[in-house]
């Protein structure tokens, strides 16, 4: 364009620039609209699915992990969004959501050994192993935050303090005061005996056996009849730091 002198020339040039910009914006807008439309369709499908299976996603940990796997396969990351539908349904920020999912996976994988009760330190170290190569470091505090968000999933994820340790419970079983006290005593050696409970907590043997039986049935404890003193020991995998215990089913 030949440059014309004077105010008139400058004004014409400015007007032309405006026109180009408008045109450009229009084209861009049409493109984004199209894209938005496609995305909206897809998301509504996914939301429909999520809504339809909301209960399953919330209640059934196995289904939930499958749902995430499915999302990952089609290239949608429900964890990446803080706003909108996913936040309403699940209420979690991306980073914590990701950790949350990984925590669920770890709890599921170790459930057969610990009955769904794992100590926070062990959980964190397993989480770090799992996240090796990712940039963000994960602290115990992060874990706690992520777990607190997991509560909305309604599957009974909870952090309980027993003695000095924090335990993460991933099964709906409620632990009563007696159970907590037993686990606290077990923290010293990893196991307890009925005698020890009677002595330390001034319980009757009936009370101790009753509580131990419950813990055993829930899979939180394992019996050990192999000691030469002949006394049955009740071991608690959740308080022993055997991080890699049974890691074969990862």
């Amino acid at each position: 364009m030949r440059r014309r002198p004077g105010i008139g020339g400058l004004q014409t040039a400015a007007a032309a620039r405006d026109q180009y910009r408008l045109l450009g914006e229009n084209v861009a807008k049409i493109r984004t609209d199209l894209m938005k439309e496609q995305l909206a369709t897809f998301r509504s499908q996914l939301e429909d699915f999520a809504r339809k299976h909301k209960n399953d996603i919330r209640k059934n940990p196995a289904f939930r992990s499958q749902f995430h796997e499915m999302c990952a396969k089609v290239g949608v990351d429900p964890l990446a969004s803080n706003k909108g539908f996913w936040a309403e349904l699940l209420g979690i920020g991306d980073f914590y959501y990701e950790i949350g999912v990984q925590i669920v996976e770890i709890c599921l994988a170790t459930r057969a050994q610990n009955g769904g009760l794992i100590n926070l330190q062990e959980l964190c170290s397993l989480l770090r192993q799992k996240r090796k190569g990712s940039r963000e470091a994960v602290s115990e505090d992060d874990c706690l935050r992520a777990i607190s968000k997991l509560k909305v999933l309604g599957s009974g994820f909870e952090v309980i303090s027993v003695g000095k340790k924090k335990l993460v419970r991933s099964v709906p079983t409620e632990l009563n005061k007696d159970h907590n006290e037993i686990i606290e005593v077990a923290q010293a050696q990893g196991f307890v005996t009925v005698d020890e409970l009677e002595r330390r907590l001034s319980w009757t043997s009936g009370r101790a056996i009753d509580a131990l039986e419950t813990l055993l049935k829930e899979g939180f404890a394992m019996i050990d009849d192999g000691h030469r003193d002949g006394r049955r020991r009740y071991w608690f995998p959740c308080v022993s730091s055997i991080s890699s215990l049974g890691g074969s089913d990862a």
Binding site: F191, M222, G226, W235, P237
Partner: peptide, 26 residues
Amino acid sequence: LPPFFNYPPYFTLQPVRDTREKQVQL
């Protein structure tokens, strides 16, 4: 040897079904 080999209760047959299944598997 795997870590469970050093955890005493794995040497006693577990009475609870789920726990025993895991034990037998290992």
